[in-house]
Amino acid sequence: MKDKVIVTVVGKDKVGIIAAVTTALAEADVNILDISQTIMQGFFTMMMICDMAGANVDLAALKSCLDEEGERIGVKISVQHEEVFQFMHRI
């Protein structure tokens, strides 16, 4: 449980967003458990549940790596512990 993080990607839709993000995750040995993707109010919105159990970086390093990647392709990528969402939405 402790190793699960949620990656959200929001930005203007264009070719290659998923490819870029999943490549970055693969390079960090982060396993993607589930993906949901939609266009909301014209914005590309993707949410992923990932498992960091086998990751070769820690959360802070993954965040900064995805920040850079997000900047390069022009989207906002955030990474948060799954616990935040569990805590807020589940009793």
Partner: peptide, 15 residues
Amino acid sequence: MPLTIHPNEILETIH
């Protein structure tokens, strides 16, 4: 592994 959190809930938090 199913999504235990609904995408709308994730978006609500992010928002």
